[in-house]
């Protein structure tokens, strides 16, 4: 019990972030129309690509002689980049089509 309370106290900043971000995440997309479900999912998918930062840190900290760490880290950077770049580009392609529709609407 004592250790748990101690852990909470030392990590309170992180715990606050987790709780508040949880609410922000829910509130922020609360009223999304179903039309936008797919692009929103795709956009959120790109945002969790932020895991790439962890991959970059792992890669940059790997000792030059540790081939396992180098290989896995390298793979992690590639996969993370795929997630970020692919995610944002696909989302943009989807939304580009909605934009075309908007223009059409204004000219009619």
């Amino acid at each position: 019990m004592e250790t748990l309370l101690g852990w909470i106290t030392t990590h309170q900043q992180i715990i606050y972030i987790v709780i508040l971000m949880g609410f922000v995440g829910i509130e922020v997309i609360g009223r999304v129309p179903s039309v936008l479900h797919t692009p929103l999912m795709s956009g959120a998918n790109a945002i969790h690509g932020v895991v790439i930062i962890g991959a970059i840190i792992v890669m940059g900290n790997a000792e030059p002689g540790n081939y396992l760490a180098l290989a896995l880290g390298f793979l992690a950077v590639i996969l993370g980049t795929l997630n970020v770049v692919g995610g944002f580009v696909v989302t943009d392609r989807m939304l580009e089509m909605f934009k075309g529709k908007g223009n059409k609407k204004s000219t009619h």
């Binding site: 995440g25 959120a44 945002i47 969790h48």
Partner: peptide, 8 residues
């Protein structure tokens, strides 16, 4: 970023 996407 992670928690935001987790919640959303």
């Amino acid at each position: 970023g992670g928690i935001l996407v987790g919640a959303a």
